[in-house]
Design a protein around this nucleic acid. Structure first.
Lengths: 271, 271
DNA sequence: AATTACATTCGACTATGTCGAATCTCACTC
DNA sequence: GAGTGAGATTCGACATAGTCGAATGTAATT
């Protein structure tokens, strides 16, 4: 099945309905944190009994958990195990971790590495500032790609993803978030020209950033690495950018890339 | 469907076949790290085309990723996001984190907190030793419940889980791992008597541990908190156990439990 | 005790996933 | 540089397997 017309709102392409719904339930639970069956069903516009059947399966695998008192559903511990294995298997992460420490020491800033997931950046590595300010676990956090330097660095070289972001709505995170399509498109072109992306308080107040794309074998973008710079120290010294560029080049080489920056792919800015 | 006889090997109960298969694919990928379609199909004893359809759906959601060159499949970044949100929503974790720091400082040991997932413990919080030895990210790692103090602490009060572990095969992690059913059952009874579980080089060589169960509203076990003690310092000073017990009691109270230790549930040791 | 608001189970219907076979892709060989 | 083969991917008929409305169960609220 799943071979003919597809209803809007349902899985956007050739996906298996029930699996798609299961994943959508997980997605909804990410936002809602703890939800009643009815809420989930409402959010997905599906009958509660249908949702119940799927959830029962997710429950059996520990992907969701049900609170014994309130009967509400939450994400389950199996998600944590999956995420952890993902990090373990990510070559990008292991390559980056050797360079990130050095980069943080040299520049004095925290170093973040991220990959693209749909229109967002997921942070897969975080090297704290050498002076030890702040210790929050930042690995796993998700930032809209258009609002952060890491995201711009990736979008500049991934035209398909850029088209997707440019097409959809772009959430404003702070007063300075760039949401205008034309401005964003111009910024991506600048990134391609310089090999570096920047961001000033566009995602988080008080925080700015520079980032460089990472290339993998085949010449495509694999992700981006960047410095987190407090607004008070912005713009950072040019030497920091140089160190960043050097690190990005080194990591890319280790990933098997022949060239850096990556080659831009997909039909980017036309839409 | 899914209403009549179930084939062995397929989902063990009233689960939705395709969703169950999708989750099983993710599980297989956890072990295999990067696998060809055929390998996955082989591991699950399913036709490749069936697996392909499901994987296509997982791919669309970023739960798996496909390497552009080798065509192999890996877990995808969406798993990381899920795991991170899980940690955020876990009340257990937030309650524990306030006490774990204090406990680590008082005792001088690293403090771990875990919850049960099927027959394993998943570590949801890790407070490093105050002296800063070792910095590995331990959150998300999975340890067979029967081989660690955290696991014994939970199993002692969760009879159903204990029955499951006692029924299935118990992997030996080190020479000292307790795999004998009778011995393990006796140990769980001891835990119930003392409120503390111990383990000496049963999971990792050079590492011992003490753990205490955590109770939640309703009186059931929610997880366990424990100290990681290097073999050279084992057994730890009784004052450490006292501090641990105090912390476990405090966290349990914050979770809404009326009593500590938790009440033992389920038909435990009979099998 | 009655009412309400849920979650959960049941069962018929048919839309939907499944799987074998056909096709496509690409990496080796000769 | 065509030929071979190992794989992934697509196609399509078929019957299984998921879906959803209605019935039942459960627990909180008045």
């Amino acid at each position: 099945m799943a071979r003919v017309t597809r209803l809007p709102g349902e899985g956007s392409a050739e996906v298996i309905q029930s699996v798609d719904r299961a994943l959508r339930i997980l997605t909804v639970l990410q936002g809602g944190r703890r939800m009643a069956l009815g809420e989930i069903a409402g959010a997905l516009e599906l009958p509660p009994s249908t949702v119940h059947g799927i959830i029962r399966t997710l429950l059996a695998h520990g992907m969701v958990a049900q609170e014994r008192d309130s009967q509400r559903y939450r994400l389950g511990p199996a998600t944590l195990r999956l995420g952890n294995v993902y990090l373990d298997t990510l070559e990008l992460r292991s390559r980056v971790s050797t360079w990130a420490g050095e980069l943080a020491r040299r520049t004095g800033f925290a170093v973040r590495t991220g990959v693209l997931l749909q229109g967002d950046i997921v942070v897969v590595h975080h090297e704290p500032r050498p002076d030890g300010t702040r210790q929050m676990p930042e690995v796993g956090i998700v930032i809209p790609a258009h609002s952060c330097a890491l995201g711009k660095a990736v979008l500049a070289y991934d035209g398909d993803a850029a088209a997707l972001v440019l097409a959809g709505p772009r959430r404003s995170m702070t007063g300075d978030t760039v949401t205008a399509k034309a401005v964003l498109r111009a910024q991506l072109a600048e990134v391609r020209a310089s090999g570096l992306a920047t961001e000033a308080e566009e995602a988080v107040l008080g925080e700015c950033g520079v980032a460089a794309p990472l290339a993998e074998a085949g010449g495509e973008v694999a992700g981006a690495i960047g410095l987190v710079v407090p607004s008070g120290e912005w713009p950072a010294d040019p030497s920091a950018s140089d160190a960043l560029r050097t690190a990005a080049r080194a990591v890319s080489r280790e990933l098997g890339a022949q060239a850096w920056p990556p080659t831009a792919t997909g039909r980017a800015a036309t839409a």
